[in-house]
């Protein structure tokens, strides 16, 4: 199960994999996919906060893609 209460590599990788698979997507889509793939029932606000921190990632990172939408960016 993903742990959104602290930054950790397994959860970060899972969320970035999900966004990468979905393409441009909303947090709600990621939330649903987290539940489906991992059984994690994440609170939306908690998930969005975690996703905001994943904008700090490298070489993969999340980026805003317009209002309420997210995309995975691969920098290397």
């Amino acid at each position: 199960m993903a742990d959104l209460t602290r930054l950790n590599q397994a959860t970060s990788d899972l969320i970035m994999d999900i966004v990468g698979d979905l393409g441009t997507c909303t947090a709600e889509q990621v939330q649903a996919e987290l539940l489906r793939r991992d059984g994690t029932a994440a609170e939306r606000d908690e998930l969005v906060r975690y996703m905001e921190f994943l904008r700090s990632g490298f070489p993969r990172k999340l980026a805003h893609a317009g209002p309420g939408r997210w995309v995975l960016v691969v920098l290397a």
Partner: peptide, 24 residues
């Protein structure tokens, strides 16, 4: 440090876009 910033509960960004625009 990132972990400690996360634990504050506030929003912090580390690395901004990570690379200059010309690498996008």
């Amino acid at each position: 440090f990132k972990q400690a910033l996360f634990a504050t509960g506030d929003y912090w960004n580390v690395g901004f876009t990570q690379v200059p625009a010309y690498k996008y």
